[in-house]
Design a protein around this nucleic acid. Structure first.
Lengths: 279, 279
DNA sequence: ATAATCTAGTGGTATAGATGACTGATAGCT
DNA sequence: AGCTATCAGTCATCTATACCACTAGATTAT
């Protein structure tokens, strides 16, 4: 009964429609290229944030949101589901959808370069080059990057600073054939991830990471300006393209006194836990 | 045109329908209580695992799977999407869906108790009680658990063993009013999470975790049978119910020589990165 | 030969509706 | 009073379909 109105509103008479139907919230933009479910998600986030909904009561039902916003239930559900996955809200069958008061910390970890991560923490990243050259990979790196026996790698070793304080030492290895002219065109003070994305369209989407603790060697201690034998984080990371191709193998040492890791762990539901779990 | 077939097959003549429509794979179970999208997800996982699809070629399109399995595209898409989120496959608009070769490690971290985690790694967990009592919380714990000034907590301190080797020391704090008779009914050698789930229906779904490194104190070193000043992991964890109620505040020390952390980091897409990010 | 256009196949978004299952409250019965 | 049956509200799943955007290859026009 109302769908013709929506259709025409997209084409002809927006303002009329918006005023009468969307009286208590701004309208959705149907031709903006931004998916409706994403707009709805943002809208809900705003409303939760600004306290429109009481934490003790359920937020409006999916049906109500759908009719009020003039979209279908599926679309609203998509928005609600993604917010559930973020832990912002949670749904209980037969009861409703509620606001979760789980504290969201700012810096839960994603695949982030040191530069991005440092900026996200409100500091200014900066690097000092130790070495940058083409060489044969170590056996560990060769296996991690699935290289054949002849293939060479870039090896980039840098001291990383946040606000001019040394934080750690990163040693990053990439296959040469992926970005052959990196040695000439990359400024080792800058962000490697940014360079890879901009010049080569290489987007690292997944990282496997192993974290261990250890003691700083004399050289590491000197570079990081800490006492030898100080406890440090040891990171071993392997980053992949979406296709699963391993692209970057990194071994890092980070100061134990200045660095901490903030994780959010989520208990997976039935979706894969019920059976094989791992392929 | 075909929906009447599905409807009737569910009600009356299953075998007939299954034979003609699902000739090359086992049928879906429409009345089993297991959602179709979940069955499809498992089926796809099996086929990927057993090498039915070549990694270089796209897997069958959503449309084809939908008609072959006799379900709608939306349902197939739901299955495909969840596998994408797991990193098993990835879709490219206009091209198809491909198998990712990202290595899945067995022990990516979830919200797991020490018992669960140790078993997942193939060892046998075991605990030795240091202390277990009701007391006033520290200021840090009181704030983390959002307790008022009178509320008391259980404080459970245990040495954790894997295959009889000491791994770390855990100190776990919970509000008393959540599970008043814990002191009498809980066996401190067993799994706290299991007890909470079984007796009190308390399911911890999200954990915020901060990881630091430090040096073992004399007492810690003695309990873990390592040298004093050895580098160790320091964990501070806060676990929540789905509703966001903080339930358990844990501070742990783990041996640096025996413990390592395996993470998978994923680069989040547009969904929230584009704007406010954190509420 | 080159460039522009068309077209078929693909995943992405969205609609309008149906069914099922769970919850909590109400009404009626014992 | 206590129990049971019913019912409305809600979330969960699914269907059938439509249109969009993108890709790659074929066709056509220049």
């Amino acid at each position: 009964m109302l769908e013709l109105d929506y259709a025409s509103s997209a084409g002809v008479s927006e303002m009329l429609m918006d005023q009468q139907e969307m009286r208590n919230s701004s309208p959705l933009y149907r031709r903006s290229g931004i998916p409706l479910y994403h707009q709805i998600q943002q809208r809900l986030l705003d409303q939760i944030q600004s306290g429109v909904f009481k934490p003790s009561e359920p937020i409006p039902s999916i049906q109500k949101i759908a009719t009020r916003m003039g979209v279908s239930q599926m679309t609203v559900r998509q928005a609600v589901k993604s917010l559930c996955e973020l832990g912002v809200i949670y749904s209980k069958q037969g009861k409703g959808t509620f606001i979760s008061r789980i504290k969201l910390e700012r810096d839960f970890r994603q695949v982030l370069s040191f530069s991005e991560e440092t900026r996200a923490r409100g500091a200014t990243p900066h690097s000092r080059l130790i070495s940058f050259r083409i060489q044969m990979p170590s056996r560990e790196t060769r296996e991690a990057l699935a290289l054949n026996h002849k293939e060479k790698i870039f090896r980039l070793r840098r001291v990383r600073y946040a606000d001019s304080l040394p934080m750690g030492i990163e040693c990053s290895c990439l296959p040469v054939n992926l970005c052959p002219d990196l040695l000439e065109t990359f400024d080792p003070e800058g962000s490697l991830y940014q360079k890879l994305a901009e010049q080569y369209r290489i987007h690292l989407t997944v990282t496997n990471e192993v974290i261990e603790v250890g003691k700083a060697s004399d050289e590491e201690a000197r570079l990081m300006q800490i006492a030898p034998q100080s406890p440090v984080f040891l990171f071993t990371r392997l980053s992949f393209l979406e296709s699963g191709k391993p692209v970057e193998h990194v071994k890092s040492v980070y100061r134990g006194d200045r660095y901490k890791i903030v994780n959010r762990l989520v208990r997976t539901k039935r979706d894969l836990l019920s059976s094989p779990l791992v392929i």
